[in-house]
Amino acid sequence: MPNIHHAFVAGLIMLALVAPGAQAQGARAQPPDAYGAAHGFKGSEVASVITRIIERQLLTIPGVRSVHDLHVRSISSGIDAMSAHVVVTDMAEAARILKAVQRLMAAEFNTRHVTVQVENERLQGEETVRKT
């Protein structure tokens, strides 16, 4: 039985690959060439939706308080990568939470190239001060 998340994400990607504006004009949508698909997908709302879906999934992991600086990208054909900062309630749980993030990304999004910075609220606050 297919995973509902995979079907949803696949549907979103298919929407991203449809020629822009084709449905609004009543024309039959045609997929663009590879160049058009690659450039049309960058920065699109679909990519933003996928990022939000991943963030919501990460927030279901017990002990995860928030997620920021979440980035998802294709590093080559068929290989996706994710990086994020995960704020946890207890740093003693960092290893368990890291493993949970890695399992979730592999199972739900077929992404095994995962980089996670685990931090508590104090570390997140120090990071915010450094950025300003």
Score class of each variant (00 low, 15 high):
Ser83Asp: 05
Leu17Trp: 03
His71Phe: 12
Leu59Asn: 07
Gly26Phe: 10
Gln25Tyr: 04
Ser76Thr: 11
Glu121Tyr: 01
Lys131Arg: 15
Ser83Ala: 07
Asp33Pro: 08
Arg103Leu: 07
Arg65Ala: 13
Leu70Trp: 13
Val87Leu: 12
Ala94Leu: 07
Val86Ser: 07
Val18Asn: 13
Arg96Gly: 00
Met91Tyr: 00
Glu126Leu: 14
Gly78Leu: 05
Ala34Glu: 13
Leu104Phe: 08
Leu15Met: 09
Gly36Trp: 06
Val86Leu: 12
Val49Leu: 13
Gln30Thr: 15
Ala19Gly: 10
Pro32Ile: 01
Thr51Met: 08
Ser77Pro: 04
Arg112Cys: 11
Lys131Leu: 13
Leu12His: 04
Val88Lys: 02
Phe109Ala: 05
Ala37Asn: 09
Arg122Leu: 14
Ile54Ala: 07
Arg103Ser: 10
Lys99Ala: 14
Arg122Trp: 13
Ala94His: 09
Ser74Pro: 11
Ile4Tyr: 05
Met91His: 05
Ile54Gly: 00
Gln102Cys: 03
Ser77Gly: 07
Val64Ala: 05
Gln30Phe: 10
Leu15Glu: 03
Arg130Ala: 15
His5Met: 13
Gly63Pro: 04
Val49Asp: 03
Ala27Arg: 14
Val18Lys: 14
Gly125Ser: 13
His113Tyr: 09
Gln124His: 15
Glu127Gly: 12
His85Cys: 14
Gly63Cys: 06
Ala34Gly: 08
Ala84Thr: 07
Thr128Lys: 14
Tyr35Glu: 15
Ala16Val: 04
Ser44Glu: 01
Val64Glu: 03
Asp80Lys: 09
Lys42Asp: 12
Gly125Lys: 12
Asn3Gly: 08
Ala10Val: 04
Leu12Val: 02
Ala37Arg: 15
Gly11Glu: 00
Ile4Met: 05
Ala106Asp: 08
Val87Ser: 06
Leu12Arg: 02
Gln25Glu: 15
Ala94Ser: 13
Gly36Cys: 06
Gly78Phe: 03
Asp90Val: 10
His6Trp: 08
Thr115Tyr: 08
Gln57Ala: 14
Ala94Glu: 11
Lys42Arg: 14
Gly40Cys: 09
Val101Ala: 01
Phe8Cys: 06
Pro20Trp: 04
Ala100Glu: 12
Arg56Lys: 06
Thr89Val: 12
Pro2Asn: 11
Thr111Met: 06
Val88Gln: 02
Gly40Trp: 11
Gly26Met: 08
His6Gly: 07
Pro31Lys: 00
Ala24Tyr: 01
Ile50His: 02
Ala81Lys: 02
Leu59Val: 05
Thr51His: 11
Thr132Ile: 10
Leu15Thr: 02
Val18Leu: 15
Met1Lys: 06
Leu104Gly: 03
Ser66Ile: 01
